[in-house]
C-alpha cells in the first residue's frame, strides 16, 4: 500500500516537473534562426518592392514576419550600432530594401561594393519608404 502511494506521488511530481520544464522552455524559446531556416519565398529585390508599391496590405500579409530571400544590387553598405546595413537598390529607383544584418555577417559584408549582385536572407518586417528586413544573412 505504502509503495503504491509513493508511486502515485512520484508520478505526480514527475508530471509537475515535466510541465515546469516544458513551460520554461516555451517561455524561453529562441528567435527564428535565419541562418538555418529555409526561405519561404525567394524573389528579386525589385519584384518585392513592386509588389509592396502595388498592394501594400496584401503584400505585407504575405511576406511580413516571414523568412525571405531577395536578390538585388548593393547600393550602399553602412553600419548602425556595430551592425552592417546593406541597402539593395537599382540605380535610378526611389525605393530600396534595407537589410539589417546579423552581427555574425559583419566581416562578410565588407567584401562587397556598390553594384555587386548579392542574395540576402532575412525576416521581412514591412514597408515604410523602403522594404525593411531584419536578422539578415548573406547567402552564397
Amino acid at each position: 500500500m505504502r509503495n503504491r502511494t509513493f508511486k502515485i506521488i512520484f508520478g505526480f511530481l514527475l508530471l509537475a516537473a515535466l510541465g515546469l520544464v516544458a513551460s520554461i522552455y516555451y517561455y524561453n524559446k529562441p528567435h527564428v534562426d535565419v541562418q538555418k531556416s529555409e526561405a519561404t519565398y525567394v524573389l528579386s529585390a525589385q519584384n518585392l518592392i513592386d509588389q509592396y508599391r502595388n498592394n501594400e496590405t496584401d503584400t505585407d500579409k504575405k511576406y511580413s514576419e516571414t523568412v525571405i530571400q531577395v536578390k538585388g544590387k548593393v547600393f550602399e553598405i553602412s553600419t548602425l550600432k556595430g551592425n552592417s546595413v546593406i541597402t539593395l537598390k537599382d540605380e535610378g529607383l526611389e525605393s530600396s530594401i534595407i537589410c539589417h544584418m546579423l552581427p555574425e555577417d559583419n566581416k562578410r559584408t565588407l567584401q562587397f561594393k556598390k553594384g555587386d549582385e548579392i542574395n540576402v536572407k532575412g525576416i521581412c518586417t514591412g514597408y515604410l519608404m523602403d522594404v525593411i528586413m531584419v536578422r539578415c544573412t548573406l547567402v552564397d
Binding site: 516555451y26 517561455y27 524561453n28 524559446k29 529562441p30 528567435h31 527564428v32 511580413s64 514576419e65 518586417t125 514591412g126 514597408y127 515604410l128 525593411i132 531584419v134
Partner: peptide, 16 residues
Amino acid sequence: IQMLMRSFMFKKALMQ
C-alpha cells in the same frame, strides 16, 4: 515619423 511594429525586437521570441 513612421515605424513598423514588427521591427520592435524583444529579448524573448515569445514576447515578440
